[in-house]
Structure formats: C-alpha cells, structure tokens
C-alpha cells in the first residue's frame, strides 16, 4: 500500500490539537526539523501527522512563517527580516508564547529565535507584577525575603520603584 506522501506527491497533512487539518507542501514542512526527521525516518506513512500540543490558530501562523521562509530564496534576507518583524508586530503575549512553544516542539530555530527575542524585548523594562502575570507565576516571597533579595541586587533597581 502506498503512503500518503507518495499519493499526494509532495504534500503531507498536519492535524492541530483542536482537530483541524492542514495540507502542507513538503518543502514547507522541511523548515521544521521535527517533521524533517519524521520524513527522513519514513514515519510519515501515516495519513495524518497529529500535533497534539499546537492549536489551529498557532499552527496556521507557524505554517505561514514556514511557507515564507521556504519560498524565499537565500538572496532575499532583507525581505525575510522585514517579514519577520511584521509577522510578530501586533501579536499579543499569549500568541507569542504559543508560537514559542510550537516552534520549540516542531524545532523551527528561526521562528523560536524571533519569538523568544520578541518576548524578551517586551518584558525587559516591565514592572515585576506584570512579568509575573505574563509568565503565570506567583510571588511566593514574604515581604522581608523580597526586600532582602532586592537589597542584594540594589544597583539593578535604579529607575525602578
């Protein structure tokens, strides 16, 4: 029995966590090291590759990124750079985190780099409470403990209330 790859010639199907299927050209999928390894090791004969951790909205974004980067020739680096910054421009933190997680899981280094950098740039000057909310962490210091840690690193707080 022939695999779906051979049937579809150069395409494969990805399925998001919420059940949506995406038909992807093979050269686009190769932007992902995870998918590349699956194709290389011939694990791709399944009809559909499930990506249980990635929702449809995020997967659509990821595949948009992959398509742009797969189709652009290497001589168009400037164009790709402006695509990258435009791509992330108005994205909210939730979407950025989803992208980072997806890029990490699918092993798409370029996307992981730009999304992680965008998050870092955004939180750099944010007050602590906002950073805690963004990363879903609780302040588990007692006021005395927090004051002590703060005191140890006092110089780093210049300009922060």
């Amino acid at each position: 029995m022939a695999s779906s790859i051979e049937n579809n010639n150069e395409k494969l199907t990805l399925k998001s966590s919420d059940g949506e299927e995406f038909l992807v050209e093979k050269h686009v999928a190769l932007q992902s090291t995870l998918l590349q390894n699956m194709l290389d090791s011939d694990c791709s004969s399944a009809d559909v590759i499930p990506l249980p951790k990635i929702d449809a909205r995020t997967l659509a974004l990821v595949l948009g990124y992959c398509k742009k980067h797969a189709d652009a020739s290497s001589s168009k680096q400037g164009e790709l750079n402006s695509f990258d910054s435009e791509f992330l421009k108005d994205m909210d933190m939730g979407a950025l985190f989803n992208l980072v997680l997806a890029a990490n899981f699918m092993e798409i280094k370029g996307l992981l780099d730009i999304a992680a950098q965008k998050i870092a740039d955004t939180i750099k000057d944010k007050p602590h409470q906002e950073v805690r909310e963004i990363f879903h962490v609780e302040n588990d210091y007692t006021p005395e403990e927090e004051a002590a840690v703060r005191e140890e690193n006092r110089w780093a707080f210049e300009g922060f209330p």
Binding site: V100, A116, A120, D121, V131, R132, V137, N139, V149, R150
Partner: peptide, 20 residues
Amino acid sequence: NILTRLPAKTLLRFRCICKS
C-alpha cells in the same frame, strides 16, 4: 531560551519575581 536574551541587570532585578 527567553530569559538568556535579557541583559544581566534585568536578570538581577528579576530575581525578585519569585523563588523559582
């Protein structure tokens, strides 16, 4: 991956975020 992209000064400040 995200936090290593921050300057050392910001990271010292972020020690106050939480114990972990």
